[in-house]
Every structure is written in C-alpha cells, then in structure tokens.
Amino acid sequence: MNENDIKQLWQKSNEKLEVVLRENKINTEDITKLKVQNLLSSMKPIKAFTLIIGLIWVIGLGSFLAILTVFHFEKVSIFFLFSAFTQVLLTAVAIVVYIYQIHLINKIDFSEPVLTMQKKVSELKISTLNVTRLLFLQLPLWTTFYLNEKMFVVENWILLLLQFVISISFTFVAVWLFFNIKHENQNSKWFQFIISGKEWQPILHSAEILYQIEQFDKYE
C-alpha cells in the first residue's frame, strides 16, 4: 500500500461520510441554547464542593483565630496559633491559586494554533499540581498545633523526643513532596500512588500531551 492508496482510501471513506451527513440535519438550535459555562458549573461537583468547604474552612477558622488572637492571646498556646494560622494561610493561598488557574483555563482561546494552545492549556492544567504541593506543606503543622509551653519540661523527654522525630519526619516528607510533585516524575511509583484516581486523569492526560509536544519540538 503506497501513499496514494492511503489517500484514496481516506477519500473513499469521506465520500461515504458526506452521503450519510447530507441525510441528517443537526439540531444546532439546541447547542446555541446551552448556557455558556461559568467557572463553578464547569467544575466537577466534587471539586466545586471541595472548593466551597475549603472557603468555609478558611473564613470560619480564620475569623475564629483572629478573635482568639485579639481578645484571648495570653490564654492560647502560641503553638496552636502559629500552626492554625499557617494552615489557614496555606489553604487560602491554595484556593486562590486554584481559582485563578481554573479561570485561566476557561479563558483559553480554542482557535489558537494547535501546538500553541495545547502547550498553554497543558501547562496550566499541570500547574494545578502546585495546589497539591502547597497543601502537602501543611503536613508538619498537624504535629505541632496541640503543643504548649508546659509540655517542655525535662520529665517529658521521651515524649518530646518522639514529638521531635515525628515533626521532623513530617517536615522532611512535606518539603520533599513540595519539590518533587511535578509532571516529570509522573512515571515514578510514589507519584502514581499519590496522584491516582479519576480526578487526576485530566492532569495526567495533559502531561502526556505536553510530553508529546516536547518530543515534537526536540526533533524540529
């Protein structure tokens, strides 16, 4: 089979396709009635729900902490305040970054040239991994919020040693994940273990497209 045979074969199938299409009219009116998607409706319900819960958490806990700091500062453990404030701050930053990225993805112009648009959209989708990286930075905070000054006495050395080991381990894991969760590591087992499930498939799909574009550019 040579080049012309392949072309003829394709044309043949197109002729048949034209015949079938001519006999069918598409109801374009229905399409034009479809609402143009807004940010929230374009998201999967589970993501929209998570986002709303995150916002409630940031606003609720943030306000509670602000009240504690202003009116009861002396009575509250500094470890609790620091851990909770940092956690709220990281969650808030992650939410803002996420909303901004979704907004940028929704604004992408599909009539741009294929490689330009695909590179842009793939990079943007993959960058939503940054939100996960930010959220992992919270890990050590969950090992410090319950501490208070009274616990730091010599009698508690075993407990404190254990606490130190746990906090350092969580910090190490959090920082390591922060620097290593990137699409270049998508074939690693640990990456596939963390980034698995249906929700992550579009990001993996984008990573695959980006890889193909990079390979394509490499041989230009």
Binding site: S13, K16, L17, V19, V20, L21, E23, N24, N27, D30
Partner: peptide, 12 residues
C-alpha cells in the same frame, strides 16, 4: 443533547 441516531452510522 443526544444527536440524531443516524449520525452514528459513519460507514455505509
């Protein structure tokens, strides 16, 4: 919106 069923037939 479901498209007309006949459109599924891509080949005669």
């Amino acid at each position: 919106i479901p498209l007309p069923e006949e459109l599924e037939i891509m080949y005669v």
